[in-house]
Design a binder for these strands. Structure first.
Lengths: 331, 331
DNA sequence: GTCGCCTCCGACAACGATGTCAGTGTCTAG
DNA sequence: CTAGACACTGACATCGTTGTCGGAGGCGAC
């Protein structure tokens, strides 16, 4: 900036005024400064400005999602980015990988860089460590999973309702032996979805069978193995509710291998890529990651703009997409 | 930092020394400072430090990809993140959307934030505007597309070879009427893939038919329409080479609708999600986005660590995955 | 005892920008 | 002609941190 000022023959403050489009600079001076800035390829340093600026904004956001390579997370990321770009806010994106240590490291990295706000998916047993930041007025929005030990804005899929709906859909097709395949019970969404499954069974008067409930499936191959076990039972399930994306894919693979995909009904939680092109096409409870990201970003910016209402929950509804696999009736 | 110093009863410089683990601080003082920092939940401001620090590093990277929601881009992003996290480097990720204005805005946003390096996918006709940064020693690596008006490290899929291989594969199955479906000829990868297609035809002595070459397909529905047109020709193609991800999906949808998916052969460039679960399963030329991201990050860090060799091209090979659709023989 | 070296520590300037304030010049109303 | 308002400008302090430098004290070698 000093160089620009020297070249234009003005003081640094005047350059600052021109760059920030403040008033009280003559047209002539503006032209000279602009030309000098152009000539020197001057780019202001937002961090340095931020140091002295009154509002202390860095125009930067920290986003922590499951994994930037996961389609659900990627859609959330994209929605956040689209909201941020309009405000000239840049987004730091990190992957959680359901690793508590990564949560800690990422949040710390964000805070050291003085982001204006945080959008977080979490795995640690408690997020109380963010208390000081919240009190200082930093906007924090949790997405996909509810925080513990802290009250803050949270954007959630309606997991309970979606899982119940999936289960009711299968019950409605006449199924009574419906298996539940889910991932680790430590994860908020997994717990909720299992709860929805059990509740729907209860309301219909169907006693849950522990044999049909398999959890802690982290990867596709584990889901495949689980299906293999289920189909080998004396009284195998006639339908499967798969409570997560990758698990659904594992289930499809395993059912195919057994030649059972036209016989055993399947409803998955969270949409699967290419679902409508598979045969049978896959019935799912679709989430709306774009809405989740958009709402989270909107709330962050509302807070930055002064909204000081009490923390709020945003529940994003799911949508049942009937494509075929969920409408198979028991034999 | 001032507060920590006061609380610990030492000077600010001593706090700085403790935080940065410099030598010449007594164990007793270290303990006092650490305790004060803990008590005040002190987080150093990396940007302020960077202002004065000799190396001027912000431990920050700018990454511009096609779209963070696209699986290919997401995999690149993930690979970059994994490399960065080990060096405590945070990544700004942005989406290009093949919009020149977005390229300009994103790069500017990165530069204003003084990132240590750039990993870019570009769309503008020239990247000469980055000349000054390159000269100042900022590492810039281009991924997926070659830059124009600038010599810099570049990581590319072997588009020419991959496209030629796809075409040869179809020729080898006996096809002579092979359609080419690609996106905008303005895009580097599209040009290269078309070149590979034409070259393979030429080497085999097959005259290209302009009727069978359709370009500028940006979205799935356009690809579907193109297939409809192709199948309505007097002498329709017996095979299709689809030069991009989304186009391949559109082709599959359209072939299905015509009941032609078991009759018309298909090879796609870039893998498609769930490809092996479709019927017929989709034969593709798979790219390796993880390798691309990893190589780009490695090169950025090598440059930051002082590597000053001339700019280099990294060509990442493709892999032909035969799954069925590409092995259909002409009737 | 003195010199030199080393450890430990803090005062101060500086990084690149902005907020404050005061100074100059011009215009308008009385 | 003068006072007051307002446009325009730059000097200076400041943001949170680190580089430089010098001072105080301890220790070993001569």
């Amino acid at each position: 900036m000093k160089n620009v000022a020297d070249l234009a023959g003005v003081g640094v403050k005047t350059v600052s005024r021109v760059i920030n489009q403040e008033r009280h600079v003559s047209a002539d001076t503006i032209a000279r400064v602009m030309q000098a800035a152009e000539q020197l390829q001057y780019q202001p340093d937002v961090q340095a400005g931020n140091l002295r600026r009154a509002d202390r904004r860095t125009d930067t956001l920290g986003l922590l999602v499951g994994s930037v390579a996961n389609p659900f997370s990627a859609a959330v990321h994209r929605a956040v980015e689209d909201a941020a770009i309009h405000r000239h806010v840049a987004v730091f994106a990190s992957s959680l990988d359901d690793d508590p240590e990564r949560e800690r490291a990422s949040v710390e990295a964000f805070l050291r860089r003085r982001v204006d706000g945080l959008i977080l998916t979490t795995i640690q047993p408690s997020q109380a460590y963010l208390g000081p930041q919240l009190e200082q007025g930093m906007p924090v929005v949790f997405v996909d999973r509810r925080p513990n030990g802290l009250v803050a804005d949270t954007v959630l899929t309606d997991n309970l309702d979606g899982a119940a709906r999936a289960t009711r859909h299968l019950l409605g097709a006449g199924h009574r032996r419906i298996a539940f395949l889910g991932d680790s019970g430590d994860i908020y969404t997994a717990k909720e979805r299992k709860r929805g499954y059990l509740e729907a069974l209860r309301l219909e008067g169907v006693a849950p069978d522990a044999e049909l409930v398999i959890e802690n499936l982290g990867e596709e191959v584990q889901a495949e193995a689980a299906v293999n076990r289920l189909l080998a039972l004396a009284d195998p399930p006639t339908a499967i509710f798969s409570a997560q994306n990758l698990i659904t894919i594992g289930v499809i693979t395993a059912l195919r291998a057994h030649g059972a995909s036209e016989r055993v009904a399947l409803v998955g939680f969270d949409d699967v890529p290419m679902a409508s092109l598979l045969s049978p096409a896959v019935t799912v409870i679709a989430q709306d990651p774009t809405a989740i990201g958009a709402i989270a970003a909107r709330q962050i910016f509302a807070r930055l703009d002064g909204n000081a209402e009490p923390a709020q929950d945003f529940i994003v509804p799911t949508r049942l997409i009937e494509r075929g696999s969920g409408e198979i009736r028991p034999v």
